[in-house]
Structure formats: C-alpha cells, structure tokens
Design a protein around this nucleic acid. Structure first.
Lengths: 226, 226
DNA sequence: TTTCAGGCGGAGTGTTCACTCCTCTTACTT
DNA sequence: AAGTAAGAGGAGTGAACACTCCGCCTGAAA
C-alpha cells in the first residue's frame, strides 16, 4: 500500500515514540488524540480496507493531519499499532485458555482468537506479516504450543496432528472471516467446528504430511512484501 | 484499488469487446498481444499483488500502454478476465469430478479447485467479489451442489453437513493459500486433509449450525466494495 | 500568573498511478 | 498492389494520496 521507496520509518524510534509512555508522558490532549486515532483507524480500515486514505482517519478522529503524523510517523506505524493490539488480545486469550482443564484450552483459544480477528477486522491482512510485532507473535506461539500439547495429551486432538496445524486453522479462519465480513460475523464458528472435528482423534489418518519445520519457519517469519 | 469515481467502465460493452471473438475476429497481432497481456498480468499480480501498476504489466507483456487499454478498457476489466479464467478452470474441474465414483468427486474437486487457485494466485482477492462473472460462479455452484449431494449419499460426508460448508472449505483454502504463498505451494493440502476429515461422518456432531440460507445468499452475491 | 515545550490544524508538496490522445504502423481486403 | 480500418506506442494528464511545514494554541511546570 505504501510504496517501499516513499518513506522508511525508523521502526525502533517509532515504537519508542508511540509506546513508551514512561519516557515522558504525553500531554492529556495528545494522549486522547492518540486513542481516538487508533479507534478511528480501526473503524475506517474495517469499513474501507487498509487502502483507506489517512485523511479519512483524521477526519473520523476529529483531528488534523499534523496531529495524526505527530502520533504515528507513518501510516504503516499506525497499522502496526493496530496489529499489536490484535496480537495482545490474542496473547491474553491464549494465556487464559491455559487455565481451561481437560485439554479444551486449545479449542477455546481458537474461538477467542477468531473473535479478536473480527474485532480488529480491518488490519487482518497484516496480521501475519507486520514488522515490529515479531516478539509478540513469538510469545503467542509459545503459549499456542503449550495449548496444543495439552490438548494432545488429553486426546482432544488426534495423535498425528502437528503444531503447524494450529497455524493452518488460524489462516483458514482468516480466509473465512475476510470473505464473510459484513455479511456474517459468525460464519467462522461453523468453519471452526468443522476444522476442530477434523482435528479430533475420531477421523481416519491424515494422508497429508504436516508442514515441514523449515517451511513453517519461513511462513511464520515472513516480512511484508513490497 | 481503483477509486470508484475515477472510471466506470460499461461492463456489458467491455465484455463484448474482450470476449466475443465472433463479432469480428481480432487481428493476429492484437490477439497475440491480448494473450500476452493476460499472461503478464497473471505473473505480475502473482508477484506483486493486485496493486501492481498496469505499466509493469505492459512492460512484461512487451506492449505499450495504448495497446493494453485498447484490449482491456480498465484495469478492473483485466482482473475480471483473469477471474473468469480461474472460474472456468474450477468449473471444468467440478464437471470432471462428477464422473468420479463412490462419492469421492467432492474431495477431488476441492483439491483441483485449490490447484486452480494457486495457478491464478494473483487474482484470488477478487475471486468471490468480481462482477461480470456471476453466471460462471452460479454454474460452479450448481455442480458443487451435485458433488455434495453425491458425497453425502455415499456417506463420504457427515449427515449434518450442509452445502454451505463447501463454501466454507473454499474460503478457508483461500486463507491458507494467501498466507502461505511464496513459501509453500502445498501447505493447503494438509489444511484440506484436516477439513475433509472434519466433514467425514466419523466425528461427533457439529455443534454450530450451518450458515442460514439468507446469509449464504448475501455472501455469495456480494459485489466488490468500493 | 507566567512561560514555553509540546501540541494542533490544514494548506501545500511531490509522487504515483490509472487512463487518454495522437501520430505512426500493420495486417487483412479487394 | 493499394487502400484502409484497426492496431501500436508512449509521452502526457489529472486526480488521489502519503507525508510536510509552519503559524497559532494550550496544558502543565515553576
């Protein structure tokens, strides 16, 4: 969306400017505007996609362009911040699911993750490829692995399932959510029910091998394409 | 991608100009260029997404801008033509699958459809929302329904499955293919294996209801968002 | 209350991109 | 072989958009 050669934000600096409230607290009006901008961005992106002009976001937030660009050095930084919110939601859901007994945490997590995806629908296309959120994604994966192992131990998931299958489920959910958005906010539930049934031990053996670790690694570590 | 107010092609006329060779056959150079443009568009869109500039397509095809725009009145028309190719592939696959005995046509079709998606990866984002291809999509759906009923009759698909679940599978595959493209062209196979296992009769009852007919209707009949 | 760093708005800038226009060229027809 | 309708090419056009600049304003520290 943003041509690669037009502007290259210093990501580290931008993160510091937009996250580290402890460095120097934002003035109250500035903090308000920041929150309003994020909310507006979510609304606008959800309605018109990531191609929506930033001017529209500023208008919905009720601030000027200058304000938007003092809070977020680039449009990309704004999107990344939304992705960070989404991933934070997902991480919280994953940790909560760890407390679910009987190996059912994984399924609960998948549902909660889908809900988060819906809530942040606008930035879904960047979920798996936004920079500056790798650490967060890594944390999510670690918890996901625990949830998966727990589910498998309790025989809630077939023995020939693989941790990479959890990634596949999330990618599938993305597809369903993106395709049905605006028409049905619950279609994914049925899709998830089917996929979960496919992960249960009852079905016949899976004839396709899981993703190879290297392929998985590459897909997970992907950075945005220019 | 193309601002709604910038250009509104007369779709009917454009279809006639780009499809009905019988009205007046294109001159040979023109027909050649048309083919080269479609091939180039596929390549370029697959590599850089639908946001790739048309100039790049013209360059790859080895023709000028004027030529591109004489063959396709808008960028959208070019994309629509690619979607039409994709849907034609899918329709052929669906009809071939009708001949598969034992209710296994549906599964074969799903695999073949995914292969077509990969082959036309670039235009995937428009698959479910491109105008001027409704008739084709409708034909695909009719054959899909037959495949589904056949599979269910042969107990290859659980009794509580619904035709809308086939749509869900395709949307899921889109998500997996889009997320893994460039890193793995076969990840979808594993995803499909899991989903198919979920559709088999063996698993427990699906706790989520199928999409309501009206919701399905709306999602299927969707036109592109501006 | 004063001071001023930090914040605000919004017109302006440069670039990209879809699409057009016009001149020169070429493949079919007769 | 000549005539011509159709085609080719590519610089040019206008609009949209991400981002900047700068004069005015305000919350909070002293």
């Amino acid at each position: 969306m943003i041509p690669a050669d037009r502007r290259t934000a210093d990501s580290v600096e931008s993160m510091a400017a937009t996250r580290d409230a402890e460095v120097r607290p934002l003035r109250r009006d500035a903090a308000d505007n920041r929150r309003r901008l994020l909310a507006a961005a979510e609304t606008v992106f959800a309605a018109h996609g990531l191609d929506a002009p930033v001017e529209e976001i500023a208008r919905v937030a009720g601030v000027g362009m200058g304000t938007l660009y003092r809070r977020f050095p680039t449009k990309d930084a704004l999107i990344t911040e939304l992705v960070r919110e989404l991933l934070t939601d997902v991480l919280r859901a994953a940790r909560e699911a760890l407390a679910v007994p009987g190996g059912d945490g994984l399924e609960q997590f998948l549902g909660a993750a889908a809900e988060s995806h819906i809530a942040h629908r606008g930035c879904l296309p960047r979920l798996w490829s936004s920079p500056d959120t790798d650490a967060l994604r890594q944390e999510v994966r670690e918890v996901m692995l625990q949830l998966f192992l727990d589910a498998q131990e309790h025989r809630r998931v077939r023995a020939d399932a693989d941790i990479s299958d959890v990634d596949l489920v999330l990618w599938s959910l993305s597809g369903v959510i993106e395709t049905t958005h605006g028409q049905s906010e619950t279609a994914w539930r049925r899709g998830l029910a089917i996929i979960v049934a496919g992960l249960r031990p009852a079905g016949g053996a899976l004839t396709e091998p899981a993703l190879s670790p290297s392929a998985l690694q590459e897909i997970r570590g992907r950075t945005p394409t220019g």
